[in-house]
């Protein structure tokens, strides 16, 4: 038996909304330690990795007797989650050898209980081993700032060049009709931590990435006030949104490299 009771359905709604356009079918791997999801987009350029830890406060109850994989169509899941109120408590439930996943939405005042079942799918997904490495550069910034940068620069071109150095980070785009550059200076003196821009630098990095994917990742902006970008030259960037009281959602994007 698998049963996970999440205090805020809005968290799961936001996660699925941010994933469903790039990753249409995905396996939720459930174990006693929590729920993970790893999926690649159809072109194998972008990957998402979600981790929701069972021992965090976001789960009121969590039970998973046996490791199970729940193959779900995320577009369908998003439709089901739209039936939940943002303040509803949501329970996910499945048997040990599941064919269906049950969603139960309990309204805060206890007056409304909704139950939906969806059929599970057999998804043949290729799991990649992601090495736990130290990155040359880790930039932390307000998530809305990163969203704005990606959105602004995508007006002019398909690729952004991210240039991390000790003063800060530069984002540049050069398209056929024009070019743009946004310079973010390191700023760790502002009052609120979530408004800070910080750059942890072991080595400077200059790397290009497809804006189409970065813009898609920023659909996760509402999950977190901050986002971190981890970069090493000639390796995929990691865009991480922490999820309070649950874990994190990470996106990996393969770089554009001059062949």
């Amino acid at each position: 038996m698998f049963e996970a009771k999440m205090l805020q359905s809005s968290v799961l709604k936001k996660i699925i909304e941010s994933l469903k356009d790039l990753f249409s079918d995905a396996n939720f791997d459930c174990s006693s330690s929590g729920i993970t999801l790893q999926d690649m987009d159809s072109s194998h350029v972008a990957l998402c990795y979600l981790k929701l830890r069972s021992d965090e406060e976001g789960f009121e109850d969590y039970r998973c007797d046996r490791n199970i994989t729940l193959g779900v169509n995320l577009v369908l899941m998003s439709k089901i989650l739209k039936c939940a109120g943002n303040d509803d408590v949501i329970t996910l439930r499945a048997e040990d050898e599941p064919n269906i996943l049950t969603f139960i939405f309990d309204s805060k005042n206890g007056e409304r209980v909704s139950k939906y079942d969806i059929k599970l799918m057999e998804i043949d997904s290729e799991l990649l081993g992601i090495p736990d490495t130290e990155y040359s550069c880790v930039v932390k910034m307000p998530s809305h700032e990163f969203q704005r940068i990606c959105s602004n620069l995508s007006q002019l071109g398909d690729s952004v060049t991210v240039d991390c150095h000790k003063e800060g980070v530069d984002f540049k785009v050069a398209g056929e009709q024009g070019s743009g550059a946004i310079k973010l200076k390191q700023n760790t003196t502002v009052d609120k931590e979530e408004d800070q821009v910080s750059v942890e630098l072991n080595e400077a990095v200059t790397q290009s990435f497809a804006l189409k994917f970065l813009c898609a990742f920023t659909k996760a902006t509402s999950l977190s006030d901050t986002v971190s970008l981890s970069l090493t030259q000639d390796t995929p960037i990691v865009v991480e949104y922490p999820i309070a009281q649950h874990g994190y959602l990470r996106f990996y994007l393969a770089p554009k490299i001059e062949e």
Binding site: M40, S43, H44, V45, A46, L47, E126, L127, L128, G129, I130, P131, S159, S208, A210, T235, P236, Y252, A254, P255, K256, I257, E258, E259
Partner: peptide, 14 residues
């Protein structure tokens, strides 16, 4: 022109 790489180049199958 810069070429888009694939994740399979960086991460191995588990």
């Amino acid at each position: 022109i810069k070429g888009q790489t694939s994740l399979n180049r960086f991460f191995s199958k588990q």
